[in-house]
Each structure stands twice: as C-alpha cells, then as structure tokens.
C-alpha cells in the first residue's frame, strides 16, 4: 500500500466560511464600530484587504464564470443559434480581450454599447432571451442570479490581466465619453449630488468605504475592476450597470433606465479614464 493518505485539518482551511453576512437575519443591522480611537479605519481596511486577498484565489465569481461559459458555449437559441455568432467588437465569437475594449461603437445596431448592453443584446438576438424578462430583473438578488450576469462574468474573466483599452476612434465613441464626463459632474436632486461629489477628489471616504477618484486612471481602475463582482454580503454577482444604478439611488436621483444611453456614456467616461491600466477582475466585494 504505497498510498498513505491522511487528512489534515479540514475545518481550519475553510477560508471562505466567514463570508456569512447573508446568513444573518435580514433585520439585524451590523452594529456600528465602537472602538475608542478615531482613524482606526486604516487597520480595519487593512484587515479586510487581507481577507479579500485570501478569497481572491477562490473568488466565488468563478462559479458564475463557469455558468456563463456554459451558456456562451453550449446554449442554443431558436434555430440553433449560439453566442459564437455574437460579435463583442473583436469579431464573431471572440471573447478574449473583448470586455476591456467596450463601450464601443457597433455598426450593426448603430449604437455605442457597453459590455453588459452588448451581451444582453446578443442573448436576446441569438439565444432567444426576452428583453422584457431581463428588464424585469436586471440585477442579481439572493433568490436568483440572472443568466446574463453569469455571461457577463464569463466575458469579463476572459479579459483578466489585459490592459483596458476602450476605443475612442468613432465619433460616437468620443461623444459617449464627452457626454459621460458631463453626467459625472452634473449636480441635481434634493441633495445636490453629482458622481463627482463623492468620486471627484483624492483620499475621501463614506464611513469606512474608500472612494476612488474616478477622474484619475489609477483610481478609476479600482472602481472598474470591482464589477462584475461577487458581493460577500448576500453572496451574488453584481455588474457595472448595477453599480451605476445604486450610485444614482444614493445620489437621490430618479432611476436610470437599465442599459440606457446615459449609463453607457458614464461607463465610457469611466472606462476611457482607466485606459492603459491592467484589468484584474472579476472582483470580490464586502
């Protein structure tokens, strides 16, 4: 018997088992930190960063990536169409590097589309998904992660470690960037907030949450690569479109229509600002 198998410490290495916020009763809000000294936050953030790094190798985003890959490669629409016919800007069926090169101009639809918008477009066109169904629940919740979110996760993962390179060649791509830049700085609503109120300066934070200055490439990439991201609070994937939506909620704005031109423009501004930076997503978030 050459093989002498013994097991070591099963429980001790269950790294991710602490990501259990979703398991708390919904009503119980996390108690505010009551430690004495102010500016303790650096320590808290550092601790979380360590935790996040441990999880990065086993990011549950991979589960959704695998599901998305299966849909992309195997799912057939009416008439046998597949996502192999979907052109994400680099040719039909080409996924590698496509995510970090959107938003871009798509001549077939005469529109600038961000990655999420293009992927949904393809899933409707080739796989027979109904757009109104997708719009009914565009974002994941603890009951269900929609298929398009898994496909986005798969497509995003195929750009991991590649440089962000959203094109600025077509006049409409430039237009999207310019309009997005304006939307970013536009103050309105009962609180007079714009995106820039929170994301236009260095070193700011809300509570303990660091706020990247999205006007700077090295900071913009931090926000960019967080999404799609696995949210440990809740245990599901959320996308860039969700992030924009929820920012506008907190900005006290009305709700932006899912996959609308305004969001594509804003994403064009943010992505182009992050151009040249290396994409390390899909992300993992608290």
């Amino acid at each position: 018997m050459k093989q002498r198998l013994s097991t070591l410490m099963v429980a001790a290495v269950m790294t991710a088992s602490f990501a259990a916020h979703a398991q708390q009763p919904a009503k119980k809000a996390p108690p505010p930190a009551k430690a004495a000294a102010p500016a303790k936050k650096e320590g808290i953030t550092a601790e979380f960063e360590k935790f996040r790094e441990v999880l990065e190798e086993d990011n549950p985003a991979e589960l959704f990536e695998a599901k998305g890959e299966d849909i992309w490669k195997n799912k057939k629409g009416p008439g046998g169409a597949t996502m192999a016919q979907c052109d994400l800007g680099l040719g039909a069926g080409v996924v590698k590097g496509a995510y970090v090169q959107m938003p871009r101009w798509f001549a077939d639809v005469g529109q600038v589309m961000d990655a999420e918008r293009r992927i949904v477009h393809c899933m409707v066109k080739y796989l027979g998904y109904k757009e109104e169904d997708i719009r009914k629940q565009p974002f994941s919740n603890d009951q269900r992660t929609p298929d398009h979110v898994s496909v986005i996760t798969y497509v995003a993962a195929q750009s991991r470690n590649l440089k962000i390179a959203a094109p600025q060649k077509h006049a409409k791509e430039i237009e999207a960037y310019r309009i997005g830049k304006e939307i970013f700085a536009y103050r309105a609503g009962p609180y007079d907030f714009s995106c820039a109120t929170c994301h236009g300066d260095d070193g700011k934070r809300i509570r303990t949450q660091d706020l990247p200055n999205l006007r700077k490439p090295a900071e913009a990439v931090k926000a960019y690569q967080g999404w799609p991201g696995y949210r440990m609070t809740g245990g599901f994937m959320l996308t860039q479109q969700w992030r924009m939506n929820d920012c506008f909620r907190q900005q006290r704005f009305p709700e932006p229509t899912y996959l609308s031109d305004s969001i594509t423009a804003l994403l064009a501004y943010m992505t182009v600002t992050a151009n040249g930076q290396v994409y390390k997503g899909p992300g993992i978030k608290r």
Partner: peptide, 14 residues
C-alpha cells in the same frame, strides 16, 4: 455636451 447630457438624462431617468 452638457446640454446633450442633460437632455439624455431627462430621457433615461424615470
């Protein structure tokens, strides 16, 4: 572009 952005937002935000 500012005016275009505002017009776009008025169209897209509900």
């Amino acid at each position: 572009y500012r005016a275009e952005a505002v017009a776009m937002m008025k169209r897209d935000f509900k």
